[in-house]
Amino acid sequence: MFIINCPFCGKREQSEFKAGGEAHIVRPKQPTELSDDQWAEYLFMRKNIKGIQFERWNHAHGCRKWFNMVRDTSNDEIKAVYKMGEKPPTK
């Protein structure tokens, strides 16, 4: 359990949020031209990083808006929170 700083609502308990998995997986621009391998990569393969991971979260029991988060998955420490469409922090 940890506290998440929602970019729209401020600090709330993690139990109010829904995790949406790895962020910045780009939806295929030409779905009809994808091979089976490329579909598998897009649909199923995940980095599943132990360490700094970029991910999507939804404030499901709050404003219901989606946003991005940078989190250290080895200790659940949140490094940054940023809105959808914004560039991920590079530090």
């Binding site: 139990s15 995790a19 599943n48």
Partner: peptide
């Protein structure tokens, strides 16, 4: 299980 990726061997109280 919690619904977020984590290697922390803890987990949420809720």
């Amino acid at each position: 299980t919690d619904d977020y990726v984590s290697y922390s061997q803890k987990g949420s109280h809720d």
